[in-house]
C-alpha cells in the first residue's frame, strides 16, 4: 500500500485525514483509511451550512459517537462542540420518511389539481406506530458522506484547523480508539443481537400495530368524509369533483376493460364465412410457413456461427 508520505494533503479541495485502523487478530496488518473533510457547501444553501463540515468516504462502521469522538477528543478539541452528525442515508430518511407514499404527499402539496383529486391516505404521521428496528447499529455503505453540524462557526473552523494540523504533525489517529464500549460490538454479537431483535416483544408489536391501525382508520375516515363533502359541494367554479368511492360498487378500470374486450370479441363474427376470408387465411399461413423456414435457416446459420456441434461427439 502507498506510504502516507506519498498521499497528497488535499484532493479537490478536501483535506485528507488518514485514520489508522486498529489491528485485529484476524487481520494483523496495519491499514489506513482516508477520510476527506471540507466545509459544507450544499447546492441549496441552508441556514446551518456555514457551521457544518462535510465528510466523504466515512468508514462503514461510523456512528455518531465515532465522528464526535474523532473530531473532538481525538483531534484535540474540547467535547460538546458538535451538535449533530447526519449520515447520507439518514438524511434521506429524515426528509422523506414514509417512503414513496410521502413523496406523493409532497407533490400533492405542490400541485393544486392533484391535491383535489387525491384520495390516497398519506401516513407520514406515524409516531408510536413504527415497527421496531431489528439492528442495534446501522452500517454506512462505502463512499458515503456525512455532515457534521457544530454549535458555532468557530468550532467548525477549529476542527478543520485541527484536521490540517494532524496531517502536518503526522499524528496517528486510531479509528474508534477509546470508545470501544460505547458502541454496540460488531461480529457475532451484532448478529446475535439482530437475531433477538427480529423477534420483538409481542406486547410491543401489538401496541405498534394497534396504534397504526387506529391512525390508519382515522385517516381513512377523514378522507372518506372529505371525499363525501367534495362530492356534494360544488367548488368555487361551480363544479362538482368526481371522486372515488361514490357508488356502492366502485367501478374498476380493469373490469371495464375486460368487458369491452369481450364485447369486441363478440362483434368479430365468423371467420370463415366468406371465400375471401379462407383465401386470405391460406395466404397468411403460407406466408407464415415461409417466414418460419427463413427463421429456421437463420437459426441453423447462427448455430454454425456459434460453432455448435454438427459433428457427433
Amino acid at each position: 500500500m502507498p506510504s502516507s508520505a506519498k498521499i497528497p494533503l488535499q484532493i479537490a479541495g478536501y483535506d485528507i485525514l488518514p485514520l489508522s485502523l486498529p489491528r485485529l487478530a484476524s487481520f494483523p496488518q496495519a491499514a489506513i483509511h482516508y477520510l476527506y473533510v471540507a466545509p459544507h457547501q450544499p447546492k441549496l444553501p441552508t441556514s446551518t451550512a456555514s457551521r457544518s463540515l462535510f465528510l466523504v468516504n466515512v468508514p462503514f462502521d461510523s456512528t455518531e459517537t465515532h465522528i464526535k469522538h474523532l473530531l473532538s477528543a481525538q483531534v484535540g478539541l474540547p467535547a460538546g462542540r458538535i451538535e449533530d452528525v447526519q449520515f447520507e442515508g439518514q438524511r434521506r430518511k429524515a426528509t422523506n420518511s414514509g417512503g414513496a407514499l410521502s413523496i406523493k404527499h409532497k407533490q400533492d402539496k405542490n400541485s393544486k389539481k392533484r391535491k383535489r383529486g387525491s384520495s390516497k391516505i398519506a401516513l407520514d404521521d406515524m409516531e408510536g406506530a413504527e415497527l421496531p428496528s431489528t439492528w442495534d447499529r446501522d452500517l454506512q455503505s462505502n463512499g458515503l458522506t456525512a455532515v457534521v453540524l457544530f454549535v458555532d462557526r468557530a468550532s467548525m473552523n477549529a476542527a478543520l484547523k485541527a484536521v490540517k494540523a494532524v496531517r502536518k504533525e503526522q499524528i496517528e489517529l486510531v479509528w474508534g480508539e477509546g470508545i470501544e464500549d460505547k458502541v454496540p460490538a460488531l461480529g457475532s454479537a451484532r448478529y446475535l443481537n439482530h437475531h433477538q431483535l427480529t423477534y420483538p416483544d409481542t406486547g410491543q408489536i401489538l401496541e405498534s400495530t394497534n396504534n397504526y391501525m387506529t391512525k390508519y382508520a382515522a385517516k381513512e375516515a377523514s378522507q372518506a368524509r372529505s371525499a363525501a363533502k367534495q362530492r356534494q359541494e360544488p367548488d368555487e367554479d361551480g363544479f362538482i369533483t368526481v371522486t372515488r368511492g361514490g357508488r356502492t360498487n366502485p367501478a374498476k378500470q380493469e373490469a371495464a376493460q375486460e368487458l369491452a374486450e369481450k364485447q369486441k370479441e363478440k362483434q368479430k363474427g365468423l371467420e370463415d364465412f366468406y371465400r375471401f376470408q379462407s383465401r386470405e387465411k391460406r395466404k397468411e399461413r403460407a406466408g407464415e410457413l415461409v417466414r418460419k423456414f427463413e427463421e429456421d435457416k437463420e437459426r441453423v446459420r447462427k448455430m454454425k456461427e456459434r460453432r455448435s456441434r454438427f459433428r457427433p461427439e
Partner: peptide, 18 residues
C-alpha cells in the same frame, strides 16, 4: 487493503484470518 480490514472488522470474532 483497508476494505479487507473493514471486512475483518465487521466479522469480528467470527473470523480466523484472511
Amino acid at each position: 487493503h483497508t476494505t479487507l480490514h473493514d471486512i475483518a472488522r465487521l466479522g469480528g470474532d467470527m473470523l480466523l484470518r484472511i
